[in-house]
Nucleic acid binder design. Structure first.
Lengths: 339, 339
DNA sequence: CTGTTAGCGCCTTCAT
DNA sequence: ATGAAGGCGCTAACAG
């Protein structure tokens, strides 16, 4: 069996309270006693049991992140930000990956309430009406990253301005001279109610309207999220009698599908077709993809920072931070062909 | 404050032992009492505190995975396998990502001994001599996946046959008719002592020798792991007066760099250059890359399965499983140009 | 079947 | 500065 604090105390010839004090850097121990205790600890190869410590202190030194499809590049980059920020702290990270609606519900309801973690970071999973009471009743801090709900104003939130981002991209393409602009994004039927693709589409529509450009449903391709699906949508769109001269994809992954489609159809980018993505995941720079940078790594980092701060100061009033975005113009966009 | 088992007991008018029995599906509760308890639980919105439960039962229902550079595609796919396998179980997953030697040492030494997790899966991090006593003294099961050490035969291991894999790829290229074969892999100076690239290179050398082909150091490009670095190595190699007609990359990521280099130099693949990768990460199929499939997802899955089995039956004797590989021939390999 | 009690390992007063 | 004792919330063994 592993040594306990008792064993250490005995071996050092002190009370177990003293060992605890040494463990917790209390100044109330003579340096002589401390040395003796430390020696006993070393000799016994003692490591404190963190479960017991957690129970006693009422903290677990663990935080949870609930994230959908954590293998997707954008999620990974956020996770990286989360993980890196946690390394220099005392906190361990439990990852709850969500790929089904059941798992989503279970995580959202139970994780914040099991006393298992000191705080929860929820990424890109908008709480549903029925989750609200559970989240509101949580006894640990919660931070919502890229996920909001009107009745949860009491939670810390980091919001992504997707509508505005969609508008800016569309404006950018119009300014380049494009009039026939396609949009490729996620099907809205997802049971997770992701908002990003939907909101970027809204921005697209807003700007079209403002610019007096017709909204054409054949220029909008919505399918399951993925490079392959995006490629298919794009091929269909590009085979239209009057194809778009630019395509705005709701994510870089989907933009890659569009690039694939262009290549398959022998279209040169950006000469024949302009392509814009969203997120600025790692490969985007490598591919020279024009895209809306989201500072994904930073958003994860800020999310945990906010969480840790709230854990340390639970009474602080909730904040709502708007995450920055930045249009990165690279080599996949240009004026439309002379026609 | 959150409700405790006491509150539930009181509200249901029973002893707390009974509540515990209900919680733990004990059959020794009358269905009537059970119903009353369940109602009290629902009314109080009670969720058991898992720290307390863990302390009492001596298990945490958590497993740890220690993995280097978890954002790399191959690691991600293993992690997916791990995560998916854990979902239907009661176990939560703590991820320890390793990106520095210090972190590596700290994780390898402490994680298995803090009573924080019920088992540890170590991926691709070969223990060093100084880690051995710590791992051997662990009080929880440990599974080594793609990481071995001669003195740790008492641990469960899943091994990847990298040398043989390197041999098979090289044989395959020779059989296609190639005589000038390059190798692109990781620099051996990594402080993590990763073995995969090194062993694949060994396999490459073995086969060259057996085939009576000269080993040419200018045909071996080792650099920091990454697509960009691989691309640079490949460009250098392909600009040689007598360039290789085939390149074997130690990973698919590096193979992608080789493909980039070929495109940049105007070489057609596989007409002018054959390229083989290793791992069969998700994009490999999409790119039509010939590669050595590693069943990454499965390896993660098997790793946890072995771990869970050992947790449930600690006395079972350690196993050593050899993971399968499979050469997947796609569209980046062909006979060399007629010369 | 059910209530009671003794820990699980540690932290934190409270005396001393 | 230090030892002793109570308690964190739960499980499991023990009476009944």
């Amino acid at each position: 069996m592993a040594a306990t604090i008792q064993d250490v105390a005995q071996r050092a010839g002190v009370g177990l309270g003293t060992v605890s004090r040494v463990l917790n850097q209390s100044p109330l121990v003579s340096s002589e006693t401390r040395a003796r205790v430390l020696r006993a600890i070393a000799e016994l190869n003692y490591v404190p049991n963190s479960t017991a410590r957690g129970l006693s202190r009422g903290r677990t030194n663990t935080i949870a992140v609930i994230v959908p499809f954590f293998t997707r590049p954008a999620m990974m980059e956020r996770l990286r930000g989360v993980e890196h920020t946690l390394v220099p702290t005392e906190y361990d990270l439990i990852v709850y990956n969500v790929e089904t609606p059941e798992r989503r519900d279970q995580c959202l309801r139970q994780v914040p309430r099991r006393g298992r973690v000191d705080g929860v970071l929820i990424i890109s999973l908008p709480p549903r009406e029925t989750d609200v009471p559970h989240l509101a009743a949580a006894n640990v801090p919660i931070v919502l990253l890229d996920a909001h709900h009107p009745s949860l104003k009491k939670l810390n939130r980091l919001v992504v301005e997707d509508i505005k981002g969609g508008e800016r991209i569309t404006e950018f393409l119009i300014r380049l001279g494009h009039r026939r602009i396609g949009f490729i994004g996620d099907a809205p039927e997802s049971p997770f109610h992701f908002t990003s693709s939907r909101d970027r589409l809204r921005g697209y529509r807003n700007t079209l309207q403002q610019a007096g450009l017709e909204y054409r449903s054949e220029y909008v391709g919505l399918a399951a999220h993925g490079r392959i699906q995006a490629r298919q949508s794009a091929e269909r769109m590009l085979r239209l009698p009057e194809p778009p001269t630019a395509i705005f994809a709701a994510s870089d992954t989907e933009a890659m599908g569009v690039l694939d489609a262009a290549r398959a159809l022998g279209l040169s980018v950006p000469r024949d077709l302009s392509v814009v993505g969203y997120d600025d995941i790692e490969v985007a720079e490598y591919l020279g993809l024009t895209t809306m940078r989201q500072f994904l790594y930073d958003s994860g980092k800020r999310g945990v920072e906010r969480l840790l701060r709230t854990i340390e100061n639970p009474s602080a009033k909730p904040t709502c931070e708007v995450l920055p975005t930045d249009l990165i113009v690279r080599q996949t966009t240009a004026a439309p062909p002379a026609a």
